[in-house]
Simulated scan of single mutants.
Amino acid sequence: MRGKPMAPKITKPSAEKIVKDIRRETRRYFSAEEKIRIVMECLRGEDSISDICRREGIATSLYYTWSKDFLEAGKRRLAGDTARQATSDEVKVLRKEARDLKEVVAELTLENRLLKKSANGTGGDDE
């Protein structure tokens, strides 16, 4: 006797995976200004760090990461390290400017050599 045909087994995602997916989709992203505001508020000391983190909906470990980054950036700035990441547009402009300047230097060098040769009265390639 034959049994009923088996239906394909449908696996349900685990509750943990569903929660992770929801968190990933609803994750808040903080701008640099928001991060600075939160760090500065905590540094003022008017409220406790845990109260501010709870109110802002962030983990205290995230606050401490932002705080460390904020203080390190200030330390580098005070030490005179003003280097920053250049945007790709800035890099393109600077590369073009460098290329143009190299061409000008090459032209002036050639012109200078030609003038020296004519001033010495030598027309040959001997130097």
Rank of each mutant, 00 (worst) to 15 (best):
K102Q: 09
R76Q: 04
I18V: 10
S50Y: 03
D125R: 15
D21M: 15
K102V: 12
E56T: 07
K116C: 07
K75T: 03
E107I: 05
V93F: 05
S67F: 11
D100R: 10
A98D: 08
T11K: 07
I49N: 01
L108I: 06
S50R: 10
D125H: 15
I36N: 06
A15M: 14
A119K: 11
R113Y: 05
R77F: 15
V93G: 06
F70D: 02
V93Y: 02
A83W: 02
Y29K: 07
T26L: 13
T11E: 10
V105L: 13
S67N: 12
T26E: 09
T60W: 00
R95K: 14
G121M: 01
A32Y: 04
G80V: 08
S48N: 03
R95Y: 07
K17M: 12
D81S: 10
A86F: 09
P13N: 03
M6C: 03
T122L: 02
W66C: 01
S67C: 14
R44H: 00
K75D: 09
E46C: 12
S14D: 12
R77A: 15
R27S: 13
E25F: 12
E25R: 15
S31D: 11
G74N: 08
A15E: 14
W66M: 02
K35Y: 07
R54W: 02
S14F: 05
D125K: 15
K92T: 08
T60H: 00
A79I: 02
T26Q: 14
R54Y: 06
T87F: 06
F30R: 01
G57R: 09
S31C: 09
R2E: 00
G74V: 04
R37N: 14
D21T: 15
M1G: 03
K117P: 06
S48Y: 08
L114H: 04
E72Y: 05
K20E: 15
G3H: 05
T82N: 11
E33M: 08
A59E: 13
A15Q: 14
E46V: 15
A15I: 14
E111W: 04
S50N: 10
L101K: 11
L108R: 10
R55M: 02
A32K: 08
S61H: 12
T87S: 15
E56K: 06
T82A: 04
D69K: 12
L94Y: 12
R23V: 03
L101Q: 10
S50Q: 13
G123W: 11
D69S: 10
K9V: 14
A83K: 10
Y63R: 00
G121W: 01
I18K: 07
R24M: 08
I10S: 00
L101C: 10
E25G: 14
Y29I: 13
T65S: 09
R44P: 00
K9D: 10
I10E: 04
R99L: 15
G124W: 07
S118Y: 08
S31N: 07
R113G: 06
S14H: 08
L115N: 05
R113D: 05
V93D: 10
E97C: 01
E34V: 04
E103A: 09
R55L: 02
S14M: 10
K20V: 11
Q85P: 01
L101N: 05
T26I: 11
L94G: 06
E103F: 07
N112H: 06
K75A: 06
